[in-house]
C-alpha cells in the first residue's frame, strides 16, 4: 500500500521461491523509489529481525 514495486522482480521472487531473508535484504531492487527505501529499509529490516528473534 502506498508503494510501487517492480512487477518483474516480485514475480521472479515468487516463481523462484526466494528465501524471505533475501527478499527483505533486497527490497530496494524492487522499488521504484530508491529514496523511500534508503529511508525506511532499516526500519523494515529491524522489524523483521525482531520477529525472528521472538520466534527463536
Amino acid at each position: 500500500m502506498g508503494l510501487r514495486l517492480r512487477q518483474a522482480v516480485c514475480e521472479n521472487w515468487i516463481k523462484t521461491q526466494t528465501p524471505i531473508h533475501t527478499v527483505i535484504g533486497r527490497l530496494k531492487t524492487a522499488n521504484f523509489d530508491p529514496e523511500f527505501y534508503r529511508r525506511h529499509e532499516p526500519a523494515i529490516q529491524r522489524q523483521f529481525a525482531e520477529i525472528l528473534a521472538v520466534k527463536r
Partner: peptide, 8 residues
C-alpha cells in the same frame, strides 16, 4: 490517494 499493488 493510496495506491495498492499485490503479487501472488
Amino acid at each position: 490517494n493510496l495506491e495498492y499493488q499485490t503479487y501472488g
